[in-house]
Simulated assay, not measured.
Amino acid sequence: MAGLAGTGSNPDVDLLYDINGLAKDAPQWFDRGMEFVGEWGLLAAMVLLVVWCWWSVRRRGGEDAASSVAALVWAPLAAAVAVLVNVPIRGFVERPRPFVAHEDLDVLIGGKTDYSFVSDHATLTMAMGVGLFVANRKFGLVGIGIALLEGFCRVYMGVHYPTDVIGGFALGTAVVLLLSPLAMALLTPVVQAVERSERVGWVIRARGSAGGQGRVIPGAQVEAEPEERDLAA
Rank of each mutant, 00 (worst) to 15 (best):
G3L: 11
G3E: 12
A5C: 05
G8M: 13
S9C: 06
S9Y: 11
V13D: 03
L15Y: 00
D18Y: 01
K24Y: 01
K24E: 15
A26D: 01
Q28E: 15
F30I: 15
E35W: 03
E35Q: 11
V37G: 02
E39Y: 10
L42I: 12
L43S: 08
A44I: 15
A45N: 01
M46I: 12
M46W: 02
M46E: 14
C53G: 06
W54S: 04
W54T: 05
W55L: 15
S56I: 00
V57S: 10
V57C: 08
R58D: 09
R59K: 15
R59L: 14
R59D: 08
R60K: 13
G61T: 02
E63I: 05
E63V: 11
E63T: 10
D64Q: 13
V69T: 08
L72H: 06
L72F: 09
W74T: 04
W74D: 01
W74N: 04
A79N: 10
V83C: 03
L84C: 05
V85K: 02
G91V: 02
V93Q: 00
R95H: 08
R97E: 10
P98S: 10
D104M: 09
L105D: 09
D106Q: 15
V107Q: 07
V107E: 06
L108D: 09
I109H: 11
G111Q: 03
G111I: 06
T113N: 13
F117P: 03
F117N: 00
H121S: 07
T123M: 04
L124N: 12
M126P: 02
M126A: 01
G129K: 07
V130Y: 04
A135M: 07
A135H: 09
R137E: 13
G140N: 08
L141Q: 04
G143T: 03
G143Y: 06
G145Q: 04
I146F: 12
A147M: 04
A147Q: 02
L148D: 07
E150M: 15
E150F: 00
G151P: 06
G151H: 04
F152V: 09
C153L: 13
R154N: 06
V155T: 07
V155K: 05
Y156R: 05
M157H: 00
M157G: 01
M157D: 04
V159D: 02
H160Q: 12
P162K: 10
P162E: 08
D164I: 01
V165L: 11
I166D: 02
F169I: 07
G172E: 10
G172K: 03
T173N: 02
S180A: 15
P181V: 05
M184R: 13
T188G: 07
V190K: 10
V190Q: 09
Q192N: 09
A193K: 14
V194W: 12
V194H: 11
R196Q: 14
V203P: 03
V203M: 15
A206L: 12
G211I: 05
G212P: 06
R215P: 00
V216G: 00
G219R: 10
E223F: 06
E223Y: 08
E223G: 07
A224K: 14
A224D: 10
E227H: 12
E227A: 13
A232P: 00
A233T: 09
A233Y: 08
